[in-house]
């Protein structure tokens, strides 16, 4: 009994589904890319099986082109991964979920992800306002505007008013 075409097709289907599972579950960009290559290997197995089934070389020629496209895809994908890794120093695909806006800090804390440091992500802080009590003399009437940020001063003010 010869080896059936169906068996090879089922082996190709297993490879394709494993690649799909890896692509869906993995979060590292490089491993997702490897999963894609696994799916291509399953499809190539199908082509080889049909090439033998029909007893001509069209399937094998098609696999040669699949290999060519896989090589192109490898080059482009690795270049893209390098370019993405330069922007945010991580391979996590989830750091690229939102392509438009910068992800707020709260969302990343909720998703339990490691925060990353990036110079574009420094939020502006308020400059200190009011008079500096150590440099400039305090105003005469102890108005609440000048010393409201100083806790002991307000305490003293409250006690004097009382």
């Amino acid at each position: 009994m010869n080896l059936l075409t169906e068996h090879i097709l089922i082996a190709g289907a297993i490879l394709f589904c494993v690649g799909l599972l890896g692509f869906l579950t993995r979060r590292s960009m490089i491993l997702m890319f490897l999963s894609l290559e696994l799916m291509l290997a399953g499809v190539s197995l199908n082509f080889i099986a049909f090439s033998r089934h029909h007893d001509n070389y069209q399937g094998q020629v098609f696999v040669i082109f699949v290999l060519t496209i896989a090589a192109c895809e490898a080059a482009i994908a690795l270049a893209l991964i390098v370019a993405l890794y330069r922007q945010k120093a991580t391979l996590d695909i989830r750091s690229w979920h939102e392509l438009g806006e910068v992800t707020p800090e709260v969302d990343r804390i909720e998703r339990n992800e490691m925060p990353f440091e990036h110079p574009d992500l420094s939020f502006p802080t308020l400059t200190p306002a009011g008079l500096d009590p150590t440099v400039s003399p305090a105003p005469d009437r102890g108005s609440a505007n000048g010393v409201s940020r100083n806790q002991p001063a307000t305490q003293k003010e409250v006690t004097t008013h009382a």
């Binding site: 089922i10 289907a13 297993i14 394709f16 589904c17 494993v18 799909l20 599972l21 869906l24 579950t25 993995r26 979060r27 590292s28 991580t90 391979l91 996590d92 695909i93 989830r94 339990n112 992800e113 490691m114």
Partner: peptide, 26 residues
């Protein structure tokens, strides 16, 4: 290990999808 290597993204749903696809293919 990095965090994104340890925690997979929704393995149960993905396994269900792949199992359904494999069953249909077979």
């Amino acid at each position: 290990l990095a965090n994104y290597d340890i925690r997979l993204s929704s393995p149960v749903t993905s396994a269900a999808v792949a199992a359904v696809l494999l069953t249909i293919l077979v």
